[in-house]
């Protein structure tokens, strides 16, 4: 039994992943060895030089002060930042300083709302477009033009017309995540097998019933693929949008720490964004598996 465990593909893949992780950490550690603070010079310096060093944050920090960090953070600095942020994720020091969990909640709420509205628009519209070849061709040029527009290009227009920065953020999520869903829904609906539709018409199934009982289950895997892509885009967009609009959210957190040139916090935020993005993707992968069928 043990032998088969070691031989299983998953176990071996996991082992290789772990090795890659350790390798990355080792490279990081080796690369940042030099940037560790140099020991204070033992030769006496002039009073003027000492004062300059103090103003530049180079002398030994007094009790209670944090030492100045320059360059790329070392593993130890990174670790202590992660522990510090995760140990108190819910603190709230007024409107401009909140814990990482609160910031994440704001971002997820914006993404959720924008994505929901996108679903409500894209799936019914995709159904209509998919069922009618005429509409499909008519809508195609608009979709092709609007699809590749960067989220940030929408932002000034949204701010100007909507006149509310948080709604603008949600709008940008909506406008960027609606297209993959719309296209995939239309494609899924259009490529339902002729035979199944013919059987439905032979049995004189009413249109609404046909849509819900035949087309929807048949197109579901494609629709969910679209939703999965859209969610990935929405999560990409939120960080950029919040960096631009500010106030709350994980994007604002990155921006605020960038202002302070605090690389450890920026890297921490990048890790958090990655992990949350992965979890969202896993969730949709599960949903996708649930609706997949074998012909």
């Amino acid at each position: 039994m043990n032998a088969s465990l070691f031989k299983s593909l998953e176990f071996r893949a996991g082992l290789v992943s772990l090795l890659i992780f350790v390798f990355i950490l080792a490279v990081w550690h080796a690369a940042t060895l030099q940037s560790a603070p140099a020991p204070a010079p033992t030769t006496p310096v002039s009073a003027e030089q000492a004062e300059y060093d103090k103003l530049m944050g180079k002398s030994a920090p007094a009790a209670g002060e944090t030492a100045k960090t320059t360059g790329f953070p070392t593993l130890a600095q990174m670790g202590s930042t992660v522990v510090k942020q995760l140990s108190n994720p819910f603190y709230d020091n007024g409107p401009n300083d909140k814990g990482i969990a609160i910031q994440l909640a704001y971002s997820l709420a914006r993404v959720g709302l924008g994505f929901l509205i996108a679903c409500l628009v894209a799936i019914p519209l995709g159904f209509v477009i998919g069922m009618s070849p005429l509409l499909r061709r008519a809508f195609d040029p608009f979709i092709q033009v609007l699809k590749p527009i960067s989220p940030l290009a929408w932002m000034p227009l949204a701010l100007y017309t909507i006149k509310d920065s948080s709604i603008s953020g949600v709008f940008v999520i909506f406008i960027c995540s609606v297209w993959p869903m719309l296209l995939n829904t239309a494609f899924g609906v259009a490529s339902v097998k002729r035979e199944w539709l013919n059987v439905a018409s032979t049995l004189e199934v009413k249109p609404l019933r046909k849509a819900l009982k035949v087309i929807l289950p048949a197109a579901a895997p494609t629709i969910l693929t679209g939703m999965r892509i859209s969610m990935g885009i929405a999560w990409l967009v939120i960080v950029a949008a919040e960096m631009l609009v500010g106030g709350t959210g994980i994007g604002y957190f990155v921006w605020n720490e960038w202002n302070n040139l605090s690389l450890t916090n920026v890297i921490f935020a990048i890790l958090v964004i990655g992990v949350v993005g992965m979890l969202l993707d896993l969730f949709f992968a599960r949903l996708q598996r649930a609706v997949t069928y074998v012909e």
């Binding site: 007024g94 409107p95 401009n96 701010l159 100007y160 006149k163 509310d164 920065s165 960096m243 631009l244 609009v245 500010g246 106030g247 921006w255 605020n256």
Partner: peptide, 20 residues
């Protein structure tokens, strides 16, 4: 008073026009 840290001057202008 709630002080809102804002990302740039264009946004300061827009948020005043929008009465945010």
């Amino acid at each position: 008073v709630s002080l809102n840290k804002t990302a740039g001057w264009a946004l300061i202008r827009d948020k005043m026009i929008n009465k945010e």
